[in-house]
């Protein structure tokens, strides 16, 4: 009934070979098949950014991409950001600045911020606003998020 394809990819540094249901979104594949539930679903149609992951280093809404597109690619989810129990400096800065409240948008927000910093190590407020404008935070932690991203930039 459901057709599957075998794909090869890297997830959080580990090589994987897995079957993926054709037509399944990358978001569902990450949550239901890889059991990486840090990636959140907020709208399913690319409007909120809660499901942002890094695909070959670029932030993408995983609800708008099919799981099969992961073939041959490198995926980083929020679970892969801290290394050996050590938090990434963006994660640390989010804690220091109280840059989250409910925490539901936080994984996507942090990954989008990470991608910005990789591209632009010293972003301006405008750069941050532009890079994170697709990530909705209804708790309204935006000012703290902006401060946290700037602080992570300064700590090189």
């Amino acid at each position: 009934m459901t057709e599957k394809l075998v794909i090869n990819f890297t997830v959080n540094g580990e090589k994987e070979e897995k079957e993926v249901i054709i037509g399944q979104t990358l978001l569902k594949f990450i949550r239901d098949e890889l059991h990486l539930t840090g990636t959140k679903e907020g709208c399913e149609i690319g409007e909120c950014g809660a499901c942002v992951v890094l695909l070959d280093g670029k932030p993408v809404n995983s609800c708008l991409i099919l799981g099969v597109e992961l073939d041959g690619k490198d995926l980083i989810t929020i679970e892969g950001l801290s290394k050996n129990g050590e938090l990434d400096r963006v994660q640390k800065a989010f804690i220091d600045h109280a840059a989250f409240q409910c925490g539901y948008c936080t994984p996507g927000m942090i990954l989008a911020a990470r991608a910005l910093l990789d591209r632009k190590p010293n972003p301006t407020d405008e750069d941050i606003n532009e890079a994170l404008s697709g990530n909705l935070c209804r708790c309204g932690a935006y000012q703290e998020i902006r401060e946290a991203v700037k602080a992570s930039a300064e700590k090189k």
Binding site: L36, G38, E79, L87, Q91, I95, G103, T106, I110
Partner: peptide, 11 residues
């Protein structure tokens, strides 16, 4: 804090 920035907070 740690749970929420690492994606391990359970919803």
């Amino acid at each position: 804090a740690i749970e929420k920035v690492t994606g391990s907070a359970e919803f």
